[in-house]
Design a protein around this nucleic acid. Structure first.
Lengths: 211, 211
DNA sequence: GTCTATATACAGATAGAC
DNA sequence: GTCTATCTGTATATAGAC
């Protein structure tokens, strides 16, 4: 009320330190998990005292929640529009490329690992992650497919079902591998082959002008 | 050397207590994770003293490893032979049914969660799990497909690639949901519909006598 | 608002009696 | 072989000085 435009939820504390704490916590949580990371370690890495951490975040769980929320927001990959001049096949390939880039990224994989690992104890956080992450990807692809269905280039079907199918075909066993911290056996060359093949198979199932 | 046939790896301790410890540890690890479970809790639940736990297992990590190894062995689902009188389509449906039963089982899902969650720190255990679990499933399905390829009922292709494809189509987003402790939106009816649909789609991609 | 110092609890692992 | 009792480290969270 008094501090005006710069007041933020009644917390006029150092924004810099807050960011440093979030940054440090991100790295540690992603690398060592929630329970494997101590608040001491966060404070040390952030270059502040532990009490400062607690003055910005009520407890470890809230800090964890904030880290997850901030990270998942930064992964809004499917929100970036595709180039307008792509045909269906090219659009599918572009989506596939983005999708694989995302789920095979080391940091994103670490994120999945932590969220899955803690989902037994922190169901709400997992729900938030699923809704903001995987589910929005499905929605985005479904929207793309839906447009092409209406244009008559794809068979009519539940767009979300088709989107899930397409993304799962792309995922292959590579996603499970990286979730388990196993280097996926997918080099650059076979990656492109894989995408091309999946696009072809998907069009075989849903395409209309392919025979 | 002296104790004769009943001597087991030089450990003539109470087999009952050992089993009780493994059983208790299984439940606790699966429910609360490795780091979320204390050796005190294991001892308490097993009805023995903590020292007894340590006399059977060198440390927490070894206990964890034993639990994982014992559990994953008990999930050898694809080893059970299919009825011999099934045609290709029926065999695929049967495999699909088993596979979904397995990966959507609560205990198996908890297992995946723990292994994935700890895979950052215990890479070896995750590798063991992947090799004994998911990978054997792929191998089993690949063998089935390979047989039908040789018999000319399926198009020739890398059997493992095709097996992965089939299993991933089955998995849908349901597996990720249950990994994140989200109740999969898949009731009994839509489950069967899903399997039928996937079988149909797979045969459309790989079948030879379909049009 | 941020620090140092500390309260309190509990973890993994061990010692020693029986 | 199994127990009770304990050592030692470290965790979350807080108190109080500046």
């Amino acid at each position: 009320m008094r501090k005006g435009v710069f007041a933020r939820a009644g917390r006029p504390k150092s924004e810099e330190k807050r960011d440093a704490i979030l940054e440090a916590a991100s790295e540690l949580f992603l690398a060592q998990g929630l329970q494997g990371t101590s608040m001491d370690a966060v404070a040390l890495k952030a270059g502040v005292s532990k009490q400062t951490v607690y003055s910005h975040f009520a407890n470890k769980e809230e800090l964890f929640r904030m880290v997850i929320a901030a990270k998942v927001e930064s992964y809004g990959f499917m929100e970036a529009a595709l180039p307008a001049d792509l045909n269906l096949e090219q659009a599918l390939a572009a989506v596939g490329d983005r999708f694989l880039n995302l789920i095979l990224d080391d940091e994103v994989a670490a994120m999945f690992r932590v969220v899955i690992g803690e989902s037994g104890s922190y169901r709400k956080i997992a729900e938030l992650f699923y809704a903001s992450g995987p589910d929005t990807a499905i929605t985005a692809v479904a929207k793309l497919l839906s447009r092409h269905m209406r244009a008559g280039r794809l068979k009519q079907d539940d767009p979300r079902y088709a989107a899930c199918l397409y993304l799962n075909m792309l995922r292959g066993h590579y996603h499970l591998q990286i979730l388990m911290n196993i280097q996926p056996d997918l080099d650059e060359a076979s990656r492109e082959t894989h995408i091309r093949k999946v696009v072809g198979q998907f069009l075989l199932l849903y395409g209309k002008d392919k025979q």
